[in-house]
Nucleic acid binder design. Structure first.
Length: 469
RNA sequence: GGAGCGGUGGCAGAGCGGUUGAAUGCGCUGGAUUCGAAAUCCAGUUGGGCUUCUGGUCCACGGGGGUUCGAAUCCCCCCUGCUCCGCCA
C-alpha cells in the first residue's frame, strides 16, 4: 500500500510506476476521491466539534433540571420538561447533518480503498523498464569449475542428459499417476530417495540459515485469514492464485486461505506492532508447505516437478528500519546466502534483474536466481533438450509497501522511547523451494549410467548416502 | 461441539450512561535531593487522521452496527482469550 500523502504530493510518480509495471489502475480517480473525502471529513469534523462542545454543556444542565424535576409539582414539572427538550434539540439537529455526511463518505470509501490497495509500489529508478520476463537482464552467472556454461551438457559431461522426469522414473523418486489420482493434475508423490532428497535439501537450507546466517527459525500458519493476505499484499491482486477454504458457506465465521509462501506467516507475526528499534533487524526463516492454484498456467510446464500446486519452501524474511541503503544491503546479503548455498551444491546459476513489468505489485526491486536445468529448453532433432535456466529463487525488496499494510512500525528506544513511529522496511527471498530445486540437483549431478551423485552437503541428511541408483 | 467468564494505555489493573483519552500501581523520561547511588519527592509519558500548524480539531477502551442530547459503560453481530465438559491426531 502506498502512502496517500506521497501520492498527493506527486501523483505522476505513481502513475508512471503503474504504467511501467503494466498495472491498469485509475490513479487520477483516487486523487479525486481522496480530495472529496477529505473535504467531507473536514466538514463533518467541525460539526462534531460543535456537537462535542454542546454535549459537554448540555449534560450538566440536563442533570440539574432532572434533579429539580424530582421535587417539582405539576406545572413546574412540564415547564422543566419543555426546557429539557429545548436543550436537547440543538445537538439533535447537528446529529442529522453528521449522519448525512457519514452516508456520503461511506459511498466513496469502498472505491477509494479498492483503488488504493491496487496501486503498485513504483519500481526503483535503477530497475530496467520492460514489459515482461523477456526484458529481464542477466546480472551474473556462476558455475562450478567442472562446468562450462557455453558448452552443451554432452560436451561438458560426455553423454546426453536425461531429464529429471526420466531420472525420477528410473529411480522411482516420484509417482505422478497416483499423485494425480489422489489430488488431480499437477500433483505428485515423492517416494523413497525422492522424498529423502527433498527433505535433505530443505533441512540443509534451513539449518544453514539458522546455524550459519543467524536467522530465527519459525513455524508459521499456512492457513490464514484474508487480512493476512491483504496485509502482505498478495490480495487483492493475487486472489486467483490462492486456494480458498470456504468456511462461511458451511456456517463458519470466516473464509481462510492457503498461503503460497511462508512469507505471509512470517510477515504477519508482527502485524499491528510497534517494534523496538534495538531489536531490529528481525531475520526470520521458516519452512512451510506452499499452495498455488497456478490459475492461468494451463498447458504450461505440465510435466514434471516444475509447476505444481503444492511444494515446500524455506523462506527468509528481513524486517528493518526505513532506510534505503540498509534495505539494499540486506537485499544483497539475502542473495549471497542463496548463492553460497547453490555453490556448495555445485549448481550453475545466474542472477536475473527483473524488469518493471515482471516485478509484481509490491516490489521496488526483484532479482530472480535461476538454476541451469539441462532438461529444459527446446529439443534438437534427436530429442535432446538444449537446457535452460529455470527460476528457483526470487529476492524482493519492498521498502515500506508491505509493512504499511501490516501496520508494522518501530520507534527509537522502543515503547519507552520518544519521537515518531516509523513504518518498517521488509524484504524476502527464497532459500530453497523443493521439489523444484530437485530438477537441477538431479539433472546436473547425473552420471552416464543414470545414477545421480548426491552433493556432499546433503549426504549427512541422507544417512551418508552419496549416490542414487 | 456444549457451558461459564473475559478482551481497557508498554505491562498490571480500576471505571460499567455525562468535563474519563481514561484512576491507581509498575516501567520509562526529565528534574529536585545527594560527593555519587539507592530510597524519597515533583513533573512528564497511548496511537492515528485532517489542518489555514509555536495552534486547532476529529477518531480509537478487540472489530462492526445500533440505542441516546451524550457510550469504555446499554443492545445486536463478529473476532479472540481463559476455565470446565465432550471429542480427538
Amino acid at each position: 500500500m502506498i502512502d496517500l500523502k506521497a501520492l498527493r504530493e506527486n501523483p505522476d510518480l505513481f502513475i508512471t510506476g503503474a504504467e511501467q509495471k503494466g498495472v491498469d489502475v485509475d490513479i487520477p480517480r483516487l486523487v479525486e476521491l481522496d480530495a472529496q473525502i477529505r473535504a467531507l471529513k473536514a466538514e463533518q469534523e467541525s460539526l462534531k466539534a460543535q456537537q462535542n462542545k454542546l454535549a459537554k454543556e448540555v449534560g450538566p444542565q440536563i442533570g440539574q433540571l432532572m434533579g429539580k424535576m424530582k421535587s417539582a409539582t405539576g406545572e413546574e414539572k412540564s415547564a422543566i420538561q419543555a426546557q429539557v427538550e429545548q436543550i436537547k434539540s440543538a445537538p439533535a439537529a447537528l446529529k442529522a447533518q453528521i449522519q448525512e455526511l457519514d452516508e456520503k463518505i461511506s459511498a466513496i470509501e469502498p472505491d477509494l480503498t479498492t483503488i488504493h490497495l491496487r496501486i503498485p509500489q513504483p519500481a526503483d529508478s535503477d530497475v530496467p523498464v520492460g514489459a515482461s520476463a523477456d526484458d529481464n537482464i542477466e546480472l551474473s552467472t556462476w558455475a562450478p569449475n567442472w562446468w562450462d556454461k557455453n558448452k552443451s551438457f554432452e560436451a561438458n559431461k560426455g553423454f546426453k542428459p536425461r531429464t529429471h522426469i526420466e531420472l525420477c522414473t528410473m529411480h522411482n523418486l516420484v509417482d505422478y499417476p497416483r499423485g494425480v489420482k489422489i489430488a488431480g493434475s499437477r500433483s505428485y508423490i515423492l517416494t523413497g530417495d525422492g522424498m529423502r532428497l527433498h527433505q535433505a535439501i530443505l533441512r540443509y537450507a534451513f539449518d544453514t540459515m539458522v546455524n550459519i546466517n543467524g536467522f530465527k527459525p519459525m513455524s508459521v500458519p499456512v492457513l490464514v485469514r484474508e487480512e493476512a493476505m491483504i496485509g502482505t499484499a498478495f490480495f487483492p491482486g493475487g486472489k486467483d492464485q490462492a486456494y480458498e477454504v470456504n468456511e462461511t458457506s458451511r456456517g463458519g465465521g470466516q473464509d481462510m486461505y492457503l498461503t503460497g509462501t511462508g512469507e505471509v506467516g512470517l510477515m504477519g507475526i508482527h502485524q499491528d506492532e510497534i517494534l523496538d528499534e534495538a531489536e531490529l533487524p528481525l531475520k526470520m526463516v521458516t519452512v512451510s508447505t506452499c499452495f498455488r492454484r497456478e490459475a492461468g498456467a494451463a498447458g504450461k510446464d505440465t510435466a514434471g516437478l516444475y509447476r505444481i500446486h503444492q511444494f515446500d519452501k524455506v523462506e527468509q524474511v528481513i524486517i528493518d528500519v526505513a532506510d534505503e541503503a540498509t534495505s539494499r544491503k540486506h537485499h544483497q546479503s539475502m542473495m549471497s546466502f542463496v548463492q553460497s548455498l547453490l555453490q556448495t551444491l555445485e549448481l550453475p546459476h545466474r542472477l536475473l534483474q527483473c524488469c518493471t513489468g515482471d516485478l509484481g505489485t509490491k516490489n521496488a526491486d526483484m532479482i530472480d536466481i535461476e538454476c541451469w536445468m539441462p532438461g529444459r529448453g527446446d529439443e534438437d532433432d534427436a530429442g535432446t533438450p538444449a537446457g535452460d535456466y529455470g527460476e528457483t529463487h526470487s529476492a524482493s525488496r519492498l521498502y515500506d509497501y508491505q509493512c504499511r499494510r501490516l501496520n508494522m512500525r518501530y520507534r527509537q528506544g522502543g515503547d519507552a522511547g520518544k519521537g515518531p513511529t516509523t513504518i518498517c522496511h521488509s524484504l524476502n527471498n527464497t532459500v530453497a523451494a523443493s521439489p523444484r530445486i530437485l530438477i537441477p540437483l538431479l539433472e546436473m549431478h547425473q552420471n552416464a549410467d543414470g545414477s545421480v551423485n548426491i552433493p556432499s552437503p546433503l549426504q549427512p541428511y541422507m544417512n551418508g548416502q552419496s549416490k542414487i541408483g
